[in-house]
């Protein structure tokens, strides 16, 4: 298990190198120059040169990347192109919001999607199953920010059971934190739960066809034991894989949904960076976003190891 974890973390290194180099290279192909925006149009050539020197723009791109990487490894993702704000600080300030929403959405998706999928799979062909599949197909088609808008009207504005906007850090108050991300998490989790329910249903149906289910039944075990012991643990293997795939989509959804609730996360940071051509900031957000996805996936892999002995022992 520890071996698995270590090998996954080591595997991260080349991935982050590729990702950071790709984004770094991409963001430096930008037409136009940040210096134009910072200095305005009537700057002198000396000012121009000096700023270029200060920002390190005069060096070849590989040197610039190496310098960025050298600092990044030490936790310094650079400085905003406009003010003295450290990119690392900005990213870490907004990380709790994005992480809360991503994990909250994942939690809701599992909470709804897995039981619904299990029930539908066990009652394949029943009316409830067919209704569940149809509802899941519809759920998959809902834009999550629309769901968020529709939910925030009754919950946040009319009944005011949860705050309509604003984020409370879990270190300040756990209950307020939960309240502040509930609606957004439900909105995010809806479409993810629909996809998860369909996958879970498929996994259950597939597992119930397996030989070992027949063996379990031939031993005279009750339907409950066959289902909840023998089928469920095996069906959870593909379901956990699906959850891993969904992290990417949930993070993307979180970027958009945070706008509705006035939460300041990676979404706001990225949108500001686009508007102001703040490339160091954009670079930092992309790297941190990748890191979030990969780390959550490692968590998923660990859960995978628990249900799949083949992974654990190899």
């Amino acid at each position: 298990m520890i071996q698995l974890l270590v090998s996954r973390i080591i595997g991260l290194v080349p991935l982050l190198l590729i990702v950071s180099f790709l984004t770094f290279g991409m963001l430096h192909m930008v037409p136009g120059d940040v210096r134009d925006r910072i200095l305005g149009t009537d700057a002198t050539a000396e000012q121009y040169e000096a700023l270029g020197e200060k920002l390190g723009l005069n060096d070849p791109i590989v040197v610039q990347y190496a310098r960025w990487l050298f600092n990044a490894v030490q936790g310094d993702l650079g400085t905003s192109a406009y003010n003295s704000q450290k990119v690392t600080d900005a990213v870490l300030d907004t990380l709790p919001v994005t992480l809360s929403l991503t994990l909250g959405g994942m939690f809701v998706a599992i909470l709804i999607g897995v039981p619904a999928g299990v029930y539908a799979g066990l009652h394949r062909g029943s009316y409830i199953d067919r209704a569940a599949v149809l509802i899941a197909t519809i759920g998959q088609s809902l834009p999550n920010f629309w769901v968020a808008m529709l939910l925030v009207i009754p919950l946040g504005l009319i009944w005011q059971v949860v705050p309509a906007t604003g984020f409370v850090s879990p270190s300040d108050s756990i209950t307020e934190w939960i309240k502040s991300i509930t609606v957004a998490s439900i909105a995010l989790g809806t479409s993810a739960s629909a996809a998860l329910a369909r996958q879970t249903r498929g996994a259950i149906i597939d597992v119930l066809r397996q030989d070992y289910i027949r063996t379990a039944r031939s031993k005279g075990l009750s339907r409950e034991v066959v289902t909840f012991k023998h089928a469920l643990k095996n069906a959870s293997v593909p379901v956990i894989t699906t959850i891993g795939f969904q992290v990417n989509g949930l993070l993307g959804g979180a970027l958009i949904v945070e706008q509705i609730f006035g939460l300041h996360g990676f979404g706001s940071l990225a949108i500001d960076a686009v508007r102001t051509q703040n490339m160091p900031m954009m670079q930092g957000v992309v790297i941190m976003g990748t890191l979030v996805i990969v780390l959550v996936n490692i968590g998923v892999d660990i859960a995978y190891g628990f249900v799949n002995p083949k992974v654990r022992s190899s």
Binding site: L251, F266, G289, I293
Partner: peptide
């Protein structure tokens, strides 16, 4: 695939 798709779209 490991990249945050929407974030990359925003970066582009």
């Amino acid at each position: 695939i490991a990249l945050p798709a929407l974030l990359v779209a925003i970066a582009i």
